[in-house]
């Protein structure tokens, strides 16, 4: 028996990952190095740098989400997922609809000389790993596992919130990458 309440939380996130993978395979991985590394202005990020920034977060959260998931005991009820306070706040702050400009934390700022093709390949690899984790959620039937945060060792997020804010964050910076790419002249 499938837990519909849990599926309602995870399915839209799975669709976001799928959409990002479709975009990365049909567009980003086929762009030239020149297009991927073109900057919109002096201190703005190139498309490659936007994606690199996302990779630094997947690098952090994927292994920790995996670890959290491997430790939980499968549940057999139909309880829905309830967002934690901080997780929800973070998601609402970084979702693309929030136009407020945020400054990236130092550890997650991309270097100046990011290699586009490698960065896109890594992004695709990460998204496939997120899909694998999402499929594992179904077998443990819960999203309450606590995941270590990148903010402070005192703060832990629920796995369901990690999925949600990571996908909102991905969407935010892929939209940024698309805006940069849209300003490029044809045939770059």
């Amino acid at each position: 028996m499938k837990n519909q309440a849990l599926i309602q939380w995870i399915e839209p996130l799975e669709e976001v990952v799928e959409a990002h993978l479709l975009k990365a395979t049909s567009v980003y991985q086929n762009l030239s190095e020149e297009a991927l590394s073109a900057k919109p202005d002096h201190d703005g990020w190139s498309a490659a740098q936007c994606i690199y920034h996302l990779n630094t977060y997947s690098d952090f959260y994927l292994p920790r989400a995996q670890k959290a998931l491997s430790r939980v005991t499968p549940r057999h009820d139909n309880r829905e997922f309830r967002s934690g306070f901080l997780g929800k706040l973070l998601k609402n702050t970084i979702k693309p609809e929030n136009k407020l400009k945020l400054k990236a934390l130092k550890a997650h700022r991309p270097a100046a000389d990011v290699i586009g093709a490698t960065t896109v390949a890594q992004f695709i690899e990460h998204q496939e790993q997120w899909l694998r984790l999402i499929s594992e959620v179904e077998s443990v039937n819960q999203l309450d596992a606590r995941v270590e945060s990148s903010i402070s060792f005192l703060i832990r997020f629920k796995l369901g919130d990690v999925f949600a804010f990571m996908k909102a964050h991905d969407a935010r910076h892929l939209q940024q990458a698309d805006r940069v790419l849209a300003t490029l002249p044809e045939k770059v």
Binding site: L21, A24, T25, S26, Q29, N30, I124
Partner: peptide
């Protein structure tokens, strides 16, 4: 195939 499958 270049647009459909991850290049790896």
């Amino acid at each position: 195939i270049l647009q459909i499958v991850p290049h790896k």
